[in-house]
Design a protein around this nucleic acid. Sequence first.
DNA 1: GGGTGAATACTCGGATATGGCCTGTCCGAGTTGACGCGG
DNA 2: CCGCGTCAACTCGGACAGGCCATATCCGAGTATTCACCC
Lengths: 156, 156
Amino acid sequence: MSRGVEWALHACLNLSWLDDPVPTGTLAAFYELPSAYLNKQLQTLVRAGILTSTSGPRGGFRLARAPEAVSLLDIVVAIEGPEELFRCDQILSKGPGEHAGVDYRQSCAFARAMRDAELAWRRELAGKSVADVRADVEHGHPEAPANTRARIAELR
Amino acid sequence: MSRGVEWALHACLNLSWLDDPVPTGTLAAFYELPSAYLNKQLQTLVRAGILTSTSGPRGGFRLARAPEAVSLLDIVVAIEGPEELFRCDQILSKGPGEHAGVDYRQSCAFARAMRDAELAWRRELAGKSVADVRADVEHGHPEAPANTRARIAELR
DNA sequence: GGGTGAATACTCGGATATGGCCTGTCCGAGTTGACGCGG
DNA sequence: CCGCGTCAACTCGGACAGGCCATATCCGAGTATTCACCC
């Protein structure tokens, strides 16, 4: 899985603590990440409707919706793409006693099993929102929001 | 996910219907796959202890254990490697108010959530064996074992 | 002093190189079975 | 007819190229701020 997923997750969490737009350079400096590449990932999140962007001075990125409405699955899908992890190439169609016109993505027992497992994974990720994670963090580290806001202001 | 996973799954299922060793070329012809590359995947399954190989005439690959003892997870891990899908690079360690010596693979809320989801996926795959899939296939297509054995004998 | 306009600095956004891994291929080592020869 | 030795064919196993995607970077388009200038 792409490296950018971790960046996107933490970026969304930090943005959930901030009201004003934050530019790429500031977010990158926060975790010492390559700025231009992080920008690329954030652009992807904008295209997915998770973030909104504003240009010019005082511009940057903001969460497009409430943190409760952004699931971890949304972010993963935005960065990794909507394709399934396991891709069924329907090699069964080349086997003996098989008919053309059959969709082996549906009828192949392996494809079904792999898809079931993947659905379990997606269900877990869809059930956890950025707000949930934020609550976890604030429970264990109540100072985190203030620390983040202070550091962002310092880097601005 | 690698293309070879699908090949490995179907190869194991077919081998579960056969007692004598089957060479790579025969298995490859069965689904019209590139022989040399399939051989590479089967070698990997041998290293993982899922298959056994014998050289020379009448040689080939066999299942190393009963189909009940080979889970889909075993095969996926053998081909894809044991690494987690989501890799936590612990970028939190670069953030503010964080201490060195902390393992953020454990303490980061995102890492925990991603790992929980992945465990759900692994649990599903670990709970399904090649024997289970074989039973599914034989239920829907009782002629499949005979077809496979006949075609393999034809290609030998 | 207030308003207006251009200049400016800042930010996003997409177009552009590079590296590593998946994909695909080939040839050598080892082993088994077959065949021929001798007893 | 039986046993043995050599040979040959077959198979695995690892070493060797090619292509594609993730990674990383840079520069241009657009915009809000700022500042100077004029009324």
